[in-house]
Amino acid sequence: MNKIENNKAWFLVLPVFILVAFSAIIPLMTVVNYSVQDIFDPSTRYFVGTEWFVQVMHDAELQAALLRQFVFSLTILSIEIPLGIGVALLMPTKGKAASLGLILVAIPLLIPWNVVGTIWQIYGRADIGLFGAALNAIGIEYNYASNPTHAWLTVVLMDVWHWTPLVALLCYSGLRAIPEMYYQAARIDKASRWAVFRYIQLPKLTNVLIIGVLLRFMDSFMIYTEPFVLTGGGPGNTTTFLSQSLVKQAIGQFDLGPAAAFSLVYFLIILLVCWLFYTIIMNMQNDKRG
């Protein structure tokens, strides 16, 4: 059967295009303009070419923030993805318990980011926080404000607490979509619990897991509010991630040129990763079809 092509339908996309132009494309073009100029005020600005890009690419502080960002994103992904799958597998599937389970798991997702930071800031305190005081009571000298390892541990724990539910809910929906006949076939074959997971559940979860990894990577790569409230980027710069460095440069020091150049590098990295994930998803779907 021949598919009818009607390109007039593209006009229906026009409102979205205008909206995206106003909210993303024009601001991005402005950032590109800023990145090649030294701006003192709106009327006093000088063209500097690629000078800010050279500075940004050689800035040791920004390179360290970029490295920290990758380490952070990979760390939380390596914890949240398996943990989310585990939580989804353990969640009840029928009756009131299923509804209750869904509500309980979803609670951290409903809390605003700055509140999450504040909760963990208090929770981790050695004097009044339950987590910090409990660790100190059993002899572990825990202080996230002065010890970089403890600060990292707290930021990672906070992110895992906040965002594992998203992965769990995605996996839960993926698991619910597996037809019962697969499990029936597995029972006939006397497949072990592990075999059911390895050969039925995990392959069927691939698509939601890719979406989960993509969402968590992008979100964690742009993380700002929670560590800003929890540690303020410290002790020293040990929990200063890319967004914090960028905000410090753009708003704190008002270095619009270098901050714009850095924003573009940041944007390109995210664009590259998103494209890679998009390509993987599309290829997997094509492989399944064909």
Binding site: N7, I26, M29, T30, V32, N33, Y34, V36, Q37, I39, P42, R45, F47, G49
Partner: peptide, 29 residues
């Protein structure tokens, strides 16, 4: 558009991108 702080090289850059996109659309059609 003055608030966008345009420069000649960036204007040329975006014009080139715009022309490429228009050209690709026509080519595709």
């Amino acid at each position: 558009m003055a608030w966008m702080s345009w420069t000649v090289p960036t204007a040329l850059f975006f014009s080139a991108i715009g022309l490429i996109l228009i050209g690709m659309t026509i080519w595709q059609t």
